[in-house]
């Protein structure tokens, strides 16, 4: 059994750790609120964009845009999005595992790594890495995520890869982040069938006007959608990161509190034992004297 002094020392050290995790929890909580607001604010854009795309489905022809080219899939591109820093529980591990599983199912997968954790995981395994990005700020903009989508698009159009998939943690709520795979290239545009996502619409096609013409509009919409999908995924990852870190740090703080209670109890017991022992010694000493 460790000595009382040793136990008191341990209590102090756990208290120090607790202070650190609590500070990190508070920082993550405030960043989390901002990141969550950002991801929620940007979701409508992508949703609407996909709705618009349905109207363009009849014109979606690979002749119009190279982004629609369905080729035999020989090589896939995987854009794996993680955080730069750790202390986020299983968040990054889950994403990386999903990305690697996905890559195993497709021969000749190459990666675009976003976030330091993804970069180092893929480098360590010596998998083909097309590009790496890290150091995106807490409030990423489309300007910052633009190069990611540009590389994916160029590789796809250039024929280096035949499909592009995003793997990222989708933000559900503070306690739940789900690793998700999303194909962004080539586009598969399903025409709006009756009872589709917009069931309220009357069946039968609305006769749409296009300015200046459907092909031009399609060529405006498609590149936007790639950029926005990547941007959205990065925001999802940021919100997930801050949420996961906040929860991880809260768990650590709570665990530290439990540990402090436990060790304090042990220390008090040790103290009591010591005092009892001393009392006994004094008492027996006094008795021995009085007898003599």
């Amino acid at each position: 059994m460790p000595s009382e002094r040793e136990l008191r020392r341990r209590v102090r050290s756990v208290k120090n750790i607790q202070q650190v995790t609590q500070a990190m929890q508070l920082v993550a909580a405030s960043r989390m609120r901002r990141a969550q607001a950002a991801v929620l604010a940007s979701r409508p854009y992508e949703d609407r964009l996909r709705t618009v795309l349905h109207e363009l489905a009849p014109f979606a022809d690979p002749e119009v845009s190279p982004l629609l080219a369905q080729r035999e899939v020989r090589r896939v591109g995987v854009v794996a999005i993680t955080s730069d820093r750790g202390l986020v529980g299983a968040l990054n591990v889950n994403v990386i595992r999903m990305a690697l599983r996905f890559a195993q199912r497709h021969e000749g997968a190459s990666f675009i790594a976003v976030g330091r954790k993804a970069v180092s995981a893929i480098r360590r395994l010596r998998l083909p890495l097309l590009a790496e990005f890290s150091g995106l700020g807490d409030r990423p903009t489309t300007v910052e995520t633009g190069p990611i989508s540009r590389i994916a698009r160029d590789e796809f159009v250039g024929g280096g890869i035949d499909e592009v998939h995003l793997v990222f943690p989708r933000f559900v709520n503070t306690l739940r982040q789900v690793p998700t795979t999303l194909r962004i290239l080539p586009f598969r545009i399903e025409p709006d069938t009756a009872g589709g996502p917009r069931g309220a619409e009357p069946p039968g096609r609305l006769q749409y006007l296009f300015e200046p013409d459907p092909e031009t509009v399609l060529n405006v919409v498609l590149p936007r959608l790639i950029e926005v999908s990547v941007y959205q995924a990065v925001l999802e990852a940021k919100a997930s990161e801050q949420s996961a870190r906040m929860v991880a740090m809260r768990n650590a703080t709570d665990a530290a509190a439990d540990l402090i209670d436990e060790i304090t109890l042990a220390a008090n017991k040790a103290r009591q034992t010591r005092i009892t022992k001393e009392m006994l010694e004094i008492a027996s000493g006094a008795e021995a004297l009085s007898k003599g």
Binding site: Y208, L209, F210, E211, P212, T216, V217
Partner: peptide, 19 residues
């Protein structure tokens, strides 16, 4: 500001998708 010039939309406009 449409790509081909300004355009006004009033209620009951025909369905339109414009850059």
């Amino acid at each position: 500001p449409g790509s081909e010039g300004y355009l006004g939309i009033l209620p009951h406009h025909a369905p339109l998708l414009t850059a």
